[in-house]
């Protein structure tokens, strides 16, 4: 896989992606689900009622207590992993560019999801949503993923709320939504995160940042070109304005992070200048969700 080199894949091979039970899907998989069905993991006993499948009566308990009780098992299901990849114009900034890091992250999430038999789907978004590509279930789907990522050129403005609405409108099943973005748009994030939370998705936001976003080094008489909209603004940039700009961006990111957390999501920040393995470890780390297989992750 060209996007992920061998070293990264070895790191990813040790990673697992934990999904909260309520965010699992319908097929059998490796994630715990809230449903009690025909799984292998014992969950509880319950009194027998007429009509129950007699094959699940715990005869050993009946022998000890003289009452018919049924054995209930947790059903292990797979999960949908929706990877929303920001392909707006602002992702072209940074060195390496934010889109390059984001593409590797998207591929990493898809790769890990594939390995744990989840259905991962990379969905590029800008101010709208393209047609949903097919989910990746196995190694045979990786070339299609590579083509998809290669075709993701950063351009256009950001409208995250509209993208989320489009995602919901297409009947996307509940799952994990990994949003890989630089969050460098002033609006739409709170609505988008709230909507995702309301849809029952587990939200994980990977903010890919670069030094220019928070602490640019240029100054002087400048004509600023908006990488997303192409808008041009003339400014005399000096130290005071740079400080003010940094404060504005920090304030915006803090608001977006709080919106994400209110929606039950996780907020992870990475920088393009960090080593890729460190980025991967940070993105796949975090709160431990016990899996159906008993893993710590």
């Amino acid at each position: 896989m060209a996007v992920l080199d061998r070293a990264i894949r070895r790191v990813l091979d040790r990673m697992r992606l934990g999904v909260r039970p309520r965010a699992t899907a319908g097929r059998q998989g490796s994630h715990r689900s809230p449903l009690k069905a025909h799984g292998v993991e014992f969950a509880e006993h319950r009194p027998y009622v007429p009509g129950d499948d007699v094959r699940h009566i715990d005869w050993k308990a009946f022998a000890r207590h003289g009452q018919l009780v049924m054995r209930n098992y947790e059903e292990e299901r797979d999960a949908f992993i929706h990877i929303l990849l920001d392909v707006t114009g602002s992702m072209s900034r940074g060195a390496p560019t934010k889109i390059e890091v984001a593409q590797q992250l998207a591929a990493s999430f898809a790769y890990v999801g594939m390995r744990q038999f989840d259905r991962a789907r990379v969905v590029p978004f800008a101010d709208e949503l393209d047609d949903l590509p097919l989910a990746i279930r196995g190694a045979q789907d990786l070339p299609a993923l590579e083509r998809l990522l290669a075709a993701a050129e950063p351009a256009g403005p950001t409208n995250f709320a509209a993208a989320v609405k489009a995602l919901a409108a297409r009947g996307t099943p509940r799952g994990m939504v990994v949003v890989i973005t630089d969050v460098m748009a002033p609006e739409g994030w709170e609505d988008g995160f709230r909507h995702l939370g309301a849809m029952g998705h587990e939200v994980r936001v990977i903010r890919v940042g670069c030094a220019e976003d928070l602490a640019p080094t240029f100054s002087g008489e400048l004509e600023l070109h908006d990488a997303e909209t192409g808008e041009r603004v003339r400014l005399r940039v000096n130290k005071a304005l740079l400080e003010r700009y940094g404060a504005e961006v920090k304030k915006h990111l803090e608001a977006a992070r709080e919106s994400c957390q209110r929606a039950g999501g996780r907020w992870i920040e990475v920088d393009v200048e960090m080593p890729m393995d460190a980025i991967v470890k940070r993105c796949f780390g975090g709160p431990v969700h016990r899996t159906a297989a008993g893993s710590d992750r």
Binding site: S90, R93, D182, P186, G220, E221, L222, E223, H225, Y245
Partner: peptide, 12 residues
């Protein structure tokens, strides 16, 4: 002025 591409001019 000198041209300079930024992520988003709104913050500026």
């Amino acid at each position: 002025p000198r041209p300079q591409v930024v992520s988003n001019v709104t913050f500026w």
